[in-house]
């Protein structure tokens, strides 16, 4: 956001937002979470990692005068003027218990544990409220037809904040279906990484030159190494050959 220029530039511009209907004035540029703290709230639960990863601070809001519902993570979304907020730190959800090693990676598995996925009417509301912009309806469709790999792929960035389930007219708990699919995928479909076994064997033999170098490196160098790392060397090779 651009800083306002002029004689008042030194004074922070204030915005008015509403929490559970009560107005609060806070300086611009704060995240919703920091705005709540600025307004005097102490966050004990539902504030999570504060880094945009844990999904504990799902927030639904409207901007005054606009009928559209908007969503964001309170730790990531910057507070705006005329924002009417509702925090959704928790949403009730059914969760199946299972031993993933005993389950075949099929449509029947998903449907027997979460039969409500067949109630999807394709309204796409889940997609519209996903703060991660995941194609939720698409992966529910893939789940219905047993395309486990596609569910796993489409849902990969899910934080399990629960906003999709909060708005689903078919009462589906999408993110629990998705994590089941990702578990089935990693357990039964993805091939084991051969290089992992090789690396472990090398470490067992005491060949730890790479680790020693990393242990000696300064944080800046470590960050550099992290950013250029091979995530799945074999997969990258395979992708290169295609």
């Amino acid at each position: 956001m651009e800083e306002e220029q002029g004689p008042m530039a030194a004074e922070p511009t204030m915005v008015r937002f509403y929490l559970m209907g009560k107005p609060h004035q806070v300086p611009t540029g704060l995240t919703i979470q920091k705005a709540m703290e600025y307004a005097g709230y102490r966050l004990l639960r539902g504030c999570g990692c504060r880094g945009g990863f844990c999904g504990a601070c799902g927030t639904v809001y409207r901007i005054g005068g606009d009928y559209r519902l908007k969503v964001g993570l309170a730790c990531q979304t910057v507070v705006e003027d005329q924002m009417y907020l509702a925090q959704i730190p928790f949403f009730p959800a059914v969760k199946a218990t299972y031993k993933v090693e005993d389950l075949p990676p099929t449509a029947e598995t998903l449907i027997s544990l979460y039969p409500e996925i067949l109630r999807c009417v394709g309204c796409n509301t889940c997609r519209k409220v996903c703060p991660q912009e995941i194609e939720v309806m698409r992966y529910v469709a893939a789940a219905q037809r047993g395309d486990i790999a596609r569910v796993a792929d489409l849902s990969f960035d899910c934080l399990m904040c629960g906003l999709c389930a909060s708005r689903c007219p078919a009462e589906i708990v999408q993110y629990h279906v998705a994590i089941l699919a990702r578990r089935l995928y990693s357990r039964h479909i993805a091939k084991p990484a051969a290089h992992l076994a090789q690396c472990v064997a090398a470490i067992d033999r005491g060949e730890c030159a790479d680790l020693d170098a990393m242990a000696a490196a300064d944080p800046a160098k470590l960050k550099g190494l992290y950013n250029v790392r091979d995530i799945e060397p074999e997969d990258l090779e395979a992708a290169g050959q295609e």
Binding site: V121, G122, E135, V140, A141
Partner: peptide
């Protein structure tokens, strides 16, 4: 990209969901 078509045509004339 596609989803289930709904499998049955909705007969209720006042419902748009299907």
């Amino acid at each position: 990209e596609w989803t289930c078509c709904g499998a049955t045509f909705p007969m209720a004339a006042d419902s748009a969901m299907g």
